[in-house]
Design a binder for these strands. Structure first.
Lengths: 135, 135
DNA sequence: TTAATATCCGACTATTGTAATCCGATTTTA
DNA sequence: TAAAATCGGATTACAATAGTCGGATATTAA
């Protein structure tokens, strides 16, 4: 299947919510309730985004999250990489030399697929949270 | 994960192989051996492509497959739809009215994600087997 | 100083979808 | 009529996703 995982969907929803409510600190509970996302799962996702610097956390009773950088500088590709470590279509693109599957190194689709992938990644890399948050 | 399934990877590989060897009928066994794809799984994939007209089958001892239409008119999107029925990022885009998940109809990411998706689909829709087969 | 509320973190379970396999039927050609 | 191919349903195996649970830590406010 060619689709975005729930984790990425939730990540985008959360970042959008935090961006729209940038005048205050937003808690995971608030996002969970307002966006209809399972609380525990969302918490995990937010912690991952925090570790990658996309958001900044504040502990304690008045705690929550704010954006870690400008929404204009935060792309969908950033989110995918923060939450899944990579953003690639085929497994062979994960390693640096590309020699993973049986067909390597004489794979006939590696080069054309790499071009296809870079085109798609360019779309992800030019779509920002600022765009998504502006409704 | 944002990645292409093995089925789609195999489908692209098979179509590429058939396109390159368009001077003859190519059997599933030959593709399986040459491309290193599990025979039974590949057979199923080829049957799906056949049902959608991307390839034409020939029964019997000298049987196999040839392209069902010009490689220039066969896009990656065609392959994805033939093998998975749809080509969408989020589940809510599957239905025509988009009212599936909890957030509908007031979902705040549906519209921006729909734009993102259409951009990606345009990439898939403008990449042909002819391009992929020309190495 | 203590209770409340929040993030943080590891481990675990449940579910789903993918990938692969098995078995047999049908078709065509030599 | 035997061999080699496609066809098709059912089943199994496996991996990744999605979600849950329990508890530790940090911060604030009463």
């Amino acid at each position: 299947m060619i689709k975005l995982s729930k984790k990425i969907e939730y990540g985008i929803l959360a970042l959008q919510y935090i961006a729209v409510h940038s005048d205050k600190i937003v808690s995971a509970k608030e996002i969970s309730e307002q966006m209809g996302i399972p609380y525990e799962f969302l918490s995990k996702t937010l912690q991952q985004l925090m570790k990658k610097g996309l958001i900044v956390s504040q502990h304690g009773i008045k705690g929550g999250y704010i954006l870690g950088k400008n929404a204009n500088d935060m792309t969908v590709k950033d989110i995918i990489i923060a939450l899944e470590g990579k953003a690639s279509f085929l497994d062979c693109f994960v390693s640096s030399n590309g020699l993973i599957c049986d067909r390597s190194p004489n794979c006939t689709i590696k080069d054309p697929m790499e071009k296809l992938q870079s085109k798609v990644m360019q779309v992800f890399n030019t779509t920002t949270i600022a765009e998504i948050a502006t409704i």
